[in-house]
Design a protein around this nucleic acid. Structure first.
Lengths: 208, 208
DNA sequence: ATATACCAAACGACCGTTCGATAGAAACCG
DNA sequence: CGGTTTCTATCGAACGGTCGTTTGGTATAT
């Protein structure tokens, strides 16, 4: 009986606080991301984040165990989507050239659609505890390996020029990663325009 | 008479303390650069720098007026040399292709030969007081304009493909700037090998 | 004797974090 | 349904620590 009452009220009443609480936590993480991006991790204070969500700084610790945890959690799983997309491209059909074009495009779009994360991700590496840092480096190595393999395949079968796939991958990824420094969402060019352009540029950089 | 004695001793004795003092100041700035690069500006303490040069942290203020000044001075004139080299190339003779190749090469070498500065320069921008920040942005804009102009000239006379010199310059500079993130002095490749390779890549990215 | 280069301690500010108190919402019970 | 208890989210103050900076003293070289 009690269970029945519980069941009936659950969909409307029980979740109310839980939902509010979950929203709070989300808004805290969103504020942290924004403020870490604007001022950098060390220059950003818990007070800044608290102000942004309308709490006292001490109250943040009801949702978060430390400032560092706040940063680490921002990184978690952030690269998975793009990494998955790009890996799928290498599994699919298509010439090396087509694959590389699609990969570069996906990578640039990934950067452009996660601007704040990418900026924090690239600047605050050295703040991470070593476990999280290893994770980040592993992701970066995986990404580089994916490009390196396709480029290497292309070089061996004559689709691409050059003999150093690692160096080529670093050049290509550098070009594509750097967009996070100059892209402005309100700017002259759309995300897809930039991604398409850079994908074409990546291919041309390697084609005979 | 006192003046005469002063004159006679000056070349050997008076400069001794001055020389030691100047060396101290230089070693402080060198330590600051190294430590700022390793830990980031905010995470680096005056104590860290003092330890590195064998002083008490309070004693640093005999040479330096503040931590911020220490950072700002690290930036001063740092871009001048490369900027001058590259400007000279655009003033010289040579086709657009030749000029662009030489410019990219000089730029990459500039990054590789000033690794620590570049890393701090790119990460700590947001710490600078606004006057120094404007200076930094002006230098970056100047650099981009130099590349943009040569690329634009080449596009108009058919040496280069494409219609957006600004975007091409951003792609090229991104590729070349990013070397600061992965280059290790003890690594497999020499500075000039990387610079030559990237210069060739830059040209290929733009040639029909 | 005098100026220099440095020491050693202290100061004041700020920051991340902790903690006891509390108001209001939810849960329980007769 | 009304009253009581429990729990939750937040407050507001305080704490411990670190850091940049100041200052008064002092040994040494000039």
């Amino acid at each position: 009986m009690a269970r029945l009452v519980g069941r009936l009220r659950a969909p409307t009443l029980v979740p109310r606080r839980q939902r509010r609480s979950a929203e709070r936590e989300k808004s805290i993480r969103a504020a942290a991301l924004r403020i870490f991006r604007q001022k950098g991790y060390h220059a950003a204070s818990m007070q800044n984040i608290a102000d942004a969500v309308g709490l006292y700084k001490g109250s943040l610790y009801y949702y978060v165990s430390s400032k560092e945890e706040l940063l680490v959690r921002l990184f978690e799983g952030r690269a998975d989507q793009v990494l998955g997309e790009i890996r799928a491209i290498t599994y699919g059909t298509g010439t090396c050239t087509e694959q590389l074009r699609a990969m570069a495009r996906a990578y640039v779009l990934g950067v452009l659609r996660n601007l704040d994360s990418v900026r924090v991700y690239l600047r605050e590496e050295y703040v991470l505890p070593s476990a999280a840092l290893r994770q980040v480096h592993a992701e970066q190595r995986t990404m580089r390996d994916l490009f390196e393999r396709v480029i290497g395949d292309g070089m061996r079968d004559g689709s691409f020029v050059g003999t150093d796939p690692k160096l080529a991958a670093l050049a290509l990824l550098g070009m594509c990663t750097w967009v996070h420094r100059w892209y402005r969402p309100k700017g002259r060019l759309t995300e897809t325009a930039i991604a398409d352009d850079f994908a074409e540029r990546a291919v041309r950089m390697l084609c005979p």
